[in-house]
């Protein structure tokens, strides 16, 4: 696709801008910012990836992954600011997800150990881990606020912090995983996933595109399960002190 052809697709930006203006939605500024940011960010990453693929150096691959982990961590930690050491907890979570995913894929030679495979798959695994961390932290916070009495009750009866927080922790882990599981149930029936569609448009065989898409779906499933579980179990102890008391500013 040429840049001239691509510029024609800006018509798809014009339509929401006109609608926003006509219906007084007030979204013109946000739409423009989003469009400009996506153009700059994606073009930049396109040229960076081109450079990394051509250089064929693992150092650049690792740098790219490190950048993804740092960005994901700083994005997700905003939702858990009252959890002590949230930055490291999210970073550890994302790193564990990345290590497990790449160990399985590269260890079993599912994909070749080249930048062309490692970087996009890392992006999807880390991106999903970030979203799951945000979903988990959001729900966990809500559960803590609405079930403060229940946590205090269990502590008052001689329960440990782990017992006191168990129900809220499990609810938050489950709730954060549901979107991933539910979206997989209807995949292919309602919509064709972006990666698969991209491959088909680029000329790949639909069957091969499906195979890669399935691999990614399984990666996302494990990324979801690992992210919310690790983050959950790393987070809850920081809500209590060594006398097994709820820290007031955390609930």
């Amino acid at each position: 696709m040429s840049y001239t052809t691509l510029s024609l697709t800006l018509l798809f930006v014009l339509i929401p801008l006109i609608l926003s203006k006509t219906l007084h939605l007030g979204l013109e500024k946000d739409t423009l910012i989003a469009t400009i940011r996506s153009i700059i960010q994606l073009l930049a990453i396109g040229y960076i990836l081109k450079f990394v693929f051509e250089s064929d150096s693992m150092v650049y691959v690792l740098l790219m992954i490190a950048l993804m982990i740092i960005t994901a961590t700083f994005n997700a930690r905003k939702k858990g600011k009252n959890i002590k050491g949230i930055t490291w907890k999210v970073a550890i979570t994302v790193i564990v997800v990345e290590v497990i995913v790449q160990s399985i894929l590269l260890g079993f030679h599912v994909v070749p150990a080249t930048a062309q495979y490692i970087i996009p798959i890392s992006g999807m695994a880390i991106g999903n881990s970030m979203i799951l961390s945000i979903l988990f932290l959001n729900r966990f916070q809500g559960e803590l606020e609405s079930h403060r009495d229940e946590v205090e009750l269990i502590l008052s009866l001689g329960g440990t912090p782990k017992q006191a927080i168990h129900r809220q922790l499990i609810t938050a882990i489950k709730a954060s995983m549901i979107p991933t599981i539910e979206s997989q149930k209807t995949i292919g029936l309602v919509q064709l996933p972006g990666m698969m569609s991209g491959q088909i448009i680029a000329g790949a065989s639909p069957v091969q595109a499906v195979q890669f898409q399935l691999m990614i779906l399984f990666v996302l499933l494990t990324s979801a399960a690992i992210s919310s579980s690790i983050l959950g179990f790393l987070s809850y102890p920081t809500l209590f002190n060594d006398r097994m008391q709820m820290l007031k500013d955390k609930f």
């Binding site: 009495d149 229940e150 205090e152 009750l153 008052s156 009866l157 001689g158 440990t160 129900r167 006398r243």
Partner: peptide
């Protein structure tokens, strides 16, 4: 130990919280 203390000193809270 906090767990032993809370079993030894029981408390009935005013709001009578219940688990599901």
């Amino acid at each position: 130990n906090p767990v032993a203390l809370r079993r030894h000193v029981g408390i009935a809270l005013q709001s009578a919280p219940m688990i599901k």
